[in-house]
């Protein structure tokens, strides 16, 4: 699944503006950063309610495909600017994390590998 497909299916808003489309290799949802560091793979879609600088740092470090914020949670302008600067696609969605996982799953995106 491409990021653009996910955006369309989820009715998401790309906070970071124009982007170069990329393939989502796998997905993961967790709000504990060290768990994400442990599981994170390149091209992963990460769903999290955390929206601060360190989330962008983790996503950039591990080359994630996108960061997805559920439930239209507020994201500070400075965070969006940082994400754009690091070429991280940040998407805001109305659905819950649970519903968003389903969108990815139905689109054939597998879970990030265990361990």
């Amino acid at each position: 699944m491409q990021v653009s497909e996910f955006v369309k299916l989820a009715g998401g808003r790309v906070l970071t503006g124009e982007y170069e489309d990329r393939e989502i290799a796998c997905g993961y949802t967790c709000d504990l950063l060290s768990h994400v560091m442990g599981k994170g793979q390149a091209d992963m879609a990460w769903i999290t309610v955390q929206a601060h600088m360190n989330v962008i740092a983790v996503a950039a470090l591990l080359d994630f495909a996108c960061v997805i914020i559920p439930e239209n949670l507020p994201v500070d302008e400075t965070i969006i600017a940082k994400a754009a600067q690091e070429d991280i696609i940040m998407i805001s969605c109305e659905q819950t994390a649970f519903e968003l996982v389903n969108v990815l799953h139905e689109g054939g995106v597998p879970s990030a590998k265990k361990g």
Binding site: D31, L32, L33, S34, H35, M37, G38, T48, Q50, H52, N54, V55
Partner: peptide
């Protein structure tokens, strides 16, 4: 509250 403190950092380094 920022998502740190899972107690996984040192184990991640070792792994």
């Amino acid at each position: 509250n920022m998502g740190f403190g899972a107690g996984m950092g040192l184990p991640n380094m070792k792994r």
